[in-house]
Simulated scan of single mutants.
Amino acid sequence: MTTNQSILLAGASGVLGRHITRALTDAGHKVTGLGRGPANGVQADLMDRDALLRAVDGRHFDTVVLAATALRKAPLRHRDMHETNALRIDGTVHLIEAARATGARRLVAESMVFGYGYGDHGDHVITEDDTFGPQGATAQLEQHIAAMRIKEQLTFEATGLEGIALRFGLFYGPGGTDAILPMLRKRQLPVADDQGRVLPWIDLVDAASAVAAAVEHGRPGQAYNIVDRTPLGFAAHVRAVAQQFGLPKPMTVPLWMMKPMSYAHVMMRTTMRVSAAKAERELGWTPAYPSSHDGLAALKAAA
């Protein structure tokens, strides 16, 4: 599974999808977008099984990449994740059926490091050997984790397909970081004190290059963590964005004040150190930006 593949990309019009399209095209592959918008070569809704199967009827693809999301902005409350949770389960079921119908051999699915569980993982460095999809501490968290757990199970157990999952850190970079700049400019993005908490990050361009590497070199049935080498607290990252772009320093508030933003509050209470050594070793992939400080500097230089 190397170059000159015909690839169906679900979510091609999204922020990550646009970067993936560029990375795959640069690697010599032919990419066809799948989505609801008219710019897609295959126009269909992943949640509409029958329409999706009609849309791919008579088409052939070597590989299918699932990078679709229902999120249009950063999720703040638990309910903001409900549509994405449904997409992770039902949308994956439908896309697997469509992939088989097109004769595809490989399925590369977007996953997230939060599937290892929200909360404080302490100093432990998480690898792919750690349990993915543990029972959520609350009913709401179980909904989110179950969606990620089931999505990966569906990917790995899809008969006739070589399933691979990429567990991404938090995204930033071209097309992503831009969204928070107006909020920082108006001081509308408060942050909670990190107090030693850190999270894994990944630049969107680096994430896309990992997808291209997985398409060509990923081992069937394997998951790969896709993160940079420098975990950083959420507040520290936002402050770095403000500093890099010469914007006002965000207001720092006690963590308890973020409780009304229930999902963001849980995320900000999480500490995760995640290793991407397996991806670097097996996929031949290395993040161009070892830290978000490096990536943000490059983003500012390109602005």
Rank of each mutant, 00 (worst) to 15 (best):
M1C: 04
T2A: 13
T3A: 15
Q5R: 13
Q5T: 03
I7T: 10
L9T: 08
G14D: 12
R18A: 14
I20Y: 03
A23H: 05
G28M: 02
V31W: 11
R36M: 08
G37N: 14
L46W: 09
D48Y: 01
R49C: 10
A51K: 13
L52G: 10
D57Y: 00
R59N: 05
R59E: 13
T63E: 08
V64E: 04
L66A: 14
K73D: 14
A74T: 08
P75F: 03
P75T: 01
L76Y: 12
M81W: 12
N85S: 03
A86E: 13
A86F: 03
R88V: 03
G91C: 09
E97L: 09
A98I: 08
R100D: 05
A101T: 07
G103K: 08
A104L: 04
A104Y: 02
R105G: 15
R106I: 01
E110G: 09
M112L: 12
F114G: 06
G115R: 07
Y116H: 14
H121T: 07
G122M: 12
G122L: 06
V125S: 06
E128A: 05
D130G: 08
T131L: 13
T131C: 05
F132M: 00
T138M: 02
A139V: 07
H144D: 14
I145V: 15
E152M: 05
L154W: 09
T155K: 06
T155P: 04
E157Q: 15
A158P: 07
T159D: 15
Y172S: 02
G173A: 07
P174M: 00
P174V: 00
G175W: 13
G175P: 08
D178T: 13
I180K: 00
R187K: 14
Q188A: 15
Q188R: 14
P190N: 04
R197Q: 02
V198C: 09
L204R: 07
V205F: 00
D206R: 01
S209V: 03
A212I: 05
A214R: 11
V215N: 11
E216A: 15
R219Q: 15
G221D: 07
Q222K: 11
D228T: 01
T230M: 09
T230K: 08
H237A: 13
V238G: 02
A240I: 00
V241L: 00
V241P: 00
L247V: 00
P248D: 02
M251V: 12
T252K: 13
T252M: 05
M257H: 02
P260M: 05
S262D: 14
H265L: 06
H265E: 12
H265T: 08
V266N: 04
M268K: 04
M268T: 14
M268I: 13
R269Q: 15
T270F: 02
V274H: 03
A279Q: 06
R281W: 03
G284K: 04
P287D: 00
P290Q: 06
S292W: 02
H293P: 01
A298R: 02
A301Y: 00
